[in-house]
């Protein structure tokens, strides 16, 4: 949690994983999120996000991620996080799967 500066983050909600409990909406100090007509959390004021981390730490369904904004061209992978382009993250329904680890015991 560095400086509480606005406009540094991308706020990504994965609607397939969100159950609409409303915790992120109720406790976000900057009122970034709202519940939409489908009862899911939706980003309304991304530029207000102060990167406090509350939503990420408290989403019981791991359905929300805060990422730094990058200058990589749209469609290009983000070299820092291993995620694909954060611009495109907004449109994801569910989080990307983690990269598989190499098997330490290949004989198995």
């Amino acid at each position: 949690m560095s400086k509480k500066q606005k406009g540094q983050t991308r706020v990504c909600v994965y609607p397939d994983w969100c159950k609409g409990c409303g915790l992120c909406v109720a406790f976000c100090p900057a009122k970034v999120l709202v519940l939409n007509a489908f009862g899911k959390s939706e980003v309304a004021n991304e530029d207000e996000c102060i990167n406090c981390g509350f939503c990420e730490l408290h989403c019981p369904d791991f359905a929300i991620a805060i990422k730094p904004r990058t200058r990589s061209a749209p469609g290009q992978p983000d070299p820092r996080s291993g995620w694909s382009d954060p611009e495109a993250e907004h449109g994801r329904a569910s989080p990307p799967e983690p990269t598989p680890e190499p098997n330490p015991n290949p004989e198995e």
Binding site: D16, C59, F62, K67, S81, P95, E97, P98
Partner: peptide, 30 residues
Amino acid sequence: MADVTQLIHDYLRHNKKFPHVFCAGCGHGI
């Protein structure tokens, strides 16, 4: 705060059915 959620996803068994069974707002997920 970047990568908190990504880190959690790295420890989950993505071959199981998600979202998990806990009800909306259940503290167990946290």
